[in-house]
Design a protein around this nucleic acid. Structure first.
Lengths: 137, 137
DNA sequence: CTGATTGCAAAAATTTTGCAAGCCT
DNA sequence: AGGCTTGCAAAATTTTTGCAATCAG
């Protein structure tokens, strides 16, 4: 029943199948940073016969459609996140802690780059790396 | 001969061995976005007997020391980049093209976050996702 | 000297592929 | 009906681990 992104899949000419819906729902209901394995687990809770390979294939499809985006999140390795909008992390190089924040000074730059380079921008990721309070000194 | 980062390794109490120097040199001389396999190849050119496992172990060490940083770069998968400073990419969701840009409006935010959350920030990554000129439509 | 570090080879984990069967439109 | 999709199992990759030998400090 996920209208937003499901629509995008269909509009692009792909079939909206139960396995794909399950993956979409899993992504939309999760915490926004799921490893492929977590997506599989979550999606299997919705559609039990779902296979690993289908998850990878669907994630690739969704990535190409710009719905989802793989990022590398400290300690957890490759994770998937919804591509739309912004994602802001502060990551500790030492312990791998991830803190999210809201401020984001990039909208002007986004617009400028979009025009200058003729890119249609859909989302962004801003990450700072360093040492958290505990890991300093 | 690599003074900067080599020093950091030693200061942190780790031995500065030829394999580690080779990996560091490989990273410093590359194009700033190398997969582990590329790092291995480049470092082996410097120190032929270097083993795969040592590269992974060294990359982990350098990551924990905040010298290097793994990121996920469209199409190429996990890549390593020097953590210091900023990295700015515009990535096409469809074809995976990566364009770099220089403008960066985050220094103020960086300072503010550093103070507010007591983080010692060393570098950042700013990526925009979207469709490049060729892939639109 | 001596413990940290390495390379090798094997083990794990992750991701991709081939294909017949099944499902969506 | 027809072709895109799927799940399974196997292959290919990628990353991690165990250990004896070696090396940096």
């Amino acid at each position: 029943m996920e209208t937003r992104h499901a629509k995008t899949v269909q509009t692009a000419g792909f079939k909206l199948t139960p396995p794909r819906q399950a993956v979409l729902t899993a992504l939309e209901s999760g915490d926004d940073h799921m490893t492929p394995a977590e997506v599989l687990a979550r999606a299997q809770a919705i559609y039990p016969s779902l296979g690993r390979a289908t998850v990878y294939r669907t994630l690739e499809l969704l990535t190409n459609l710009g719905i989802v985006r793989p990022i590398f999140l400290g300690e957890r390795g490759v994770c998937l996140t919804l591509a739309e909008g912004g994602h802001h992390h502060l990551i500790c190089s030492d312990c791998g802690a991830v803190v999210e924040f809201d401020e984001c000074p990039v909208s002007e730059l986004e617009q400028e780059l979009a025009e200058r380079l003729n890119f249609q921008i859909r989302g962004h990721l801003l990450e700072f790396y360093g040492l958290c309070a505990q890991c300093q000194g």
